[in-house]
């Protein structure tokens, strides 16, 4: 229980902590790597992306992902809960159709389509990211609530729990791992789509990459790509930790 059992948890701890250290070091320390990039790419006049600080790009990136994901969790989770209640069951088929069909739409295409409808800027990016993140959240909320064993629900009702008590004390805690997996999928997709969102006018970590690609500046591309990749890995490791915490009762 301690020796062998703890080893993967220690590894996860390390992955999250290690990733965080690397991410913070990259974000804060990128300017001091300027000589390195100058050596690697001697032909470049400007070997470091300096139009915006990486700190502010990272914060903007995280804000875009955070706000869109939060909106998706509230809306998608709410919709998933609603269609699994007796009064909302009629809408379940519709919601599932939209969620499965929508997820075949490539995120980048959804992002691009937001522009003709809403114009350029962070707002269409925010809407597109929210809409896209809704789908896995909805799908997994419905699947998670469906997966709560029928006898557990029967005894919860039989013991005298009301609908709200059943939802918050029994159904949501038991569905949480599956719901969290959906949120994780949504957030990871959003981290990547937010990077591409610099092509529709949102200032994110994708900006150095796009500017670098358009201006043949490989140093910019690498700087942006490294930080985005580190951010995604750190967030994923964080979700791993959260998933373990949510199901800690089953690991005893």
């Amino acid at each position: 229980m301690t020796g062998v059992g703890m080893a993967p948890r220690d590894f996860l701890t390390d992955r999250l902590m290690l990733g965080l250290v690397v991410l913070v070091a990259l974000v804060l320390g990128m300017p001091s790597l300027k000589p390195l990039f100058a050596t690697l790419f001697p032909r470049l006049d400007r070997p470091l992306y300096e139009a915006e600080s990486f700190v502010s790009l990272t914060l903007d990136h995280m804000a875009l992902v955070g706000v869109s994901s939060l909106a998706a969790i509230l809306l998608g989770g709410g919709a998933g809960i609603a269609v699994t209640r007796p009064w909302g069951r009629e809408f379940r088929g519709l919601l599932e159709t939209v969620a499965t069909m929508g997820q075949t739409f490539p995120p980048v295409a959804v992002l691009a389509l937001a522009v003709p409808v809403m114009g350029f800027g962070p707002e269409p990016a925010l809407i597109a990211l929210t809409l896209y993140a809704l789908l896995p959240v909805v799908e997994n909320t419905v699947a998670g609530l469906d997966g709560v064993p029928a006898p557990v629900l029967d005894s919860a009702r039989g013991l005298g729990m009301g609908p709200a008590e059943m939802l918050f004390r029994v159904e949501l805690p038991l569905a949480a791992p599956v719901i969290l997996a959906g949120i994780r999928t949504a957030v990871i997709i959003n981290v990547g789509t937010a990077a591409i969102a610099s092509t529709v006018g949102a200032k994110t970590l994708g900006l150095p990459i796009i500017v670098g690609l358009n201006g043949s500046n490989q140093a910019y591309v690498i700087q942006g790509a490294l930080i985005v990749a580190a951010l995604a890995v750190v967030i994923d490791a964080g979700f791993d930790r959260l998933a373990g915490w949510l199901t800690r009762w089953s690991q005893r």
């Binding site: 006898p151 557990v152 005894s155 039989g158 005298g160 009762w249 089953s250």
Partner: peptide, 22 residues
Amino acid sequence: KPEELRRRMGYVIQSVGLFPHW
């Protein structure tokens, strides 16, 4: 009220239905 009625009775089923997270 159904909830109040049920709280005054014990209820046991074949599949037990214990809350696995508690």
